[in-house]
Amino acid sequence: MRVPALASAVLHMLILVIMYVGLPLFTDPKVFEPPVVIEVEIVDVADITNLPKPVPEAKPEEKPKIEPKPEPKPEPKPEPKPEPKPEPKPEPKPEPKAEPVPEPEPAPKPEPKPEPKPEPKPEPKPEPKPTPKPVPKPVVKPVVKPAPKLEPKPEPKKPTFDLKQMKALLDKKKREQASKTPDDTDTKKPNSAEKVPNSSTKAMDASLPLTMSEKDALRQQVQKCWNPPTGAANAEELVVSIRMQFNQNGTLNGYPEIVNGGGFKNDFERVAAESARRAVIQCQPYKLPAEKYESWRDVTMNFNPRDMF
């Protein structure tokens, strides 16, 4: 019996080692860790500005949009868009070569693919469908979306973020390839994000197709992170106001306040308020035009679940 026991022990140790070292088969759960995104929250709560982590978070989310935009931009309006394209693309590529060579190239490819997939799902219901498809082909419709995205992108990229962006791209690629959860979030995000620009577009389309108010840009970014409470009674009426103050780099300054004029009527309201606050914390740093810092330094934002349904 000693030999078999030994063999069994060896077998189990082997499995243990495999699990520890991680065969490709067992590493999936690690790739599954979008919680990295959440990690930033701690930092924020503690009010320590730790840039490297927040940057990858915010960027992966925006990038999906960024890449589709560069494509449509050249077609619709050559004047403003051509500039952003050359800048972001050349910058990330040279830097990545120095450090992670294989990463930059694969990153752009995976992104376009996953994006179209999440979008088609939300599309059947609202307006999103026209936007994703038209983007590659026609030029007229895409104009609306590019505007909000363009503003936030050029600014962060130019300063010093190139390396980080590349990392973010990589992160994003991992997420999209390995996990379904990110896909879900992605689908939600485009959905909500598109609604915002669309609503504003209808009003602004003719006059200012390429710009979006700072507040809308902010709202769009926050909504990506917001999971409105589901299953609550009268969920669409749980409107929450959050007041937040920002640092110049787009991170939160202090703790977002729930502006509610007093207590909550019921648990659902509190849950909704906290979910909104979590969204605000989770999505920072925000990409907002730095030169207009004064206009978004102190913002009160309404979270209306109706936008999400």
Binding site: M1, V3, P4, A5, A7, S8, A9, L11, H12
Partner: peptide, 8 residues
């Protein structure tokens, strides 16, 4: 233990 038995 059950693997030990199985092998045995």
């Amino acid at each position: 233990w059950s693997w030990a038995i199985i092998i045995d």
